[in-house]
């Protein structure tokens, strides 16, 4: 009985640690992205820990104007939803809550925080927020089609819907990225990732110069702090999903063979990989202007989805022959 309680407590501690790590990496990534953008634009830029300062400042604001209880809960909804998605993902080959890391479940979990975001924006009653939410849902519809098709192709190829099994199949550097057909798939998914991360040219929902940061227009103080945490954690979750699918999830040493050293090395490799994936997105963000919503829809459904369909047909044919 005592052992069970100790076990549960240990598990809760590990979960809390992982969520804290995810938030910390997200805040660090925010600072890194701003620093890299600044260097690209020949500026000095803020310090890399600027993300931490911003979030702590927002949580230290004295007044917090609320627009009803949905508005209050929506920010919490977003943060907890994204934390849950992070715990269901295999991070460096290690899944916290589920040993399977089912891909369909993760896709649903990724939709929860976005819906929370939309609820809060709707409760604020600002017309800019309504436009922003409409655009966010439209771009979600646009980028999820090619992404899901590439995912289905991978499920068929590896004959599993479990992300953990896909990661395990890519052990010993047998990355899906090195298989020619999935190299193209990775490019398709990377474009979808650009939309998921809301970086240019797909930062249509936020668009500070057009619709005043869209859904976030009425958020300030602690509410905005929670939303920033959601967005920062979102970058970690989405890049981790990409790394899990195509880059072997950062697993280089097997845990059974090397013990705790394997965890250390795997987490370091995972961190470097998600940083590289994120920096590619930031660099694309810095050189491209913004699409209009119908241009984004056209791009995803006309080019990205077409290539994804080609990959899907290729994989199905390959399985049958």
């Amino acid at each position: 009985m005592v052992m069970e309680i100790v076990d549960i407590l240990e598990k809760i501690l590990i979960l809390a640690g992982m969520v804290t790590l995810g938030f910390a990496i997200g805040m660090l990534f925010n600072g890194i992205a701003r620093k890299v953008s600044a260097r690209i634009q020949n500026r000095v830029g803020p310090p890399v820990y600027q993300g931490f300062i911003d979030v702590f400042k927002l949580f230290g604001k004295k007044t917090n104007i609320s627009h009803g209880w949905i508005f209050d809960l929506a920010a919490l909804f977003s943060v907890s939803g994204i934390a849950l998605a992070f715990l269901f993902l295999p991070v460096a080959g290690y899944s916290m809550l589920s040993t399977d890391g089912d891909l369909f479940l993760i896709l649903y979990l990724l939709a929860i925080p976005a819906l929370g975001f939309a609820l809060g924006a709707g409760a604020s009653g600002n017309p800019n927020a309504a436009v922003g939410v409409m655009r966010a849902l439209m771009s979600m519809l646009a980028y999820e089609l090619p992404l899901v098709m590439v995912m289905v192709a991978m499920m068929v190829y590896y004959n599993t819907t479990s992300l953990a099994n896909i990661v395990a199949a890519q052990a010993n550097m047998q990355w899906a990225f090195f298989i020619p057909i999935f190299f193209i798939g990775a490019l398709v998914a990377d474009m979808a990732l650009q939309g998921m991360l809301m970086e240019k040219p797909f930062d249509i929902p936020i668009a500070p110069h057009e619709i005043a940061t869209g859904p976030m227009v009425e958020f300030g103080g602690k509410h905005l702090g929670a939303l920033m945490l959601y967005k920062m954690m979102g970058t970690v979750v989405e890049t981790t999903l990409f790394v899990d699918l195509f880059l072997g999830g950062g697993v280089v040493l097997s845990v059974a063979q090397y013990g705790w050293l394997a965890y250390l090395v795997n987490f370091a490799v995972w961190f470097v990989l998600i940083l590289i994936v994120f920096l590619i997105a930031v660099m694309i963000d810095n050189v491209l202007p913004r699409f209009r919503i119908e241009q984004a829809l056209k791009f995803y459904w006309k080019y990205d989805a077409l290539i994804a369909i080609f990959i899907l047909i290729w994989i199905f044919a390959g399985v049958k022959i």
Partner: peptide, 20 residues
């Protein structure tokens, strides 16, 4: 705001709305 006198190095950032 831009490259010449870059004020983001002090953490100053132009926001879109007064709420933020």
């Amino acid at each position: 705001m831009t490259s010449r006198y870059d004020m983001e190095r002090f953490g100053i950032f132009a926001m879109a709305t007064p709420r933020q």
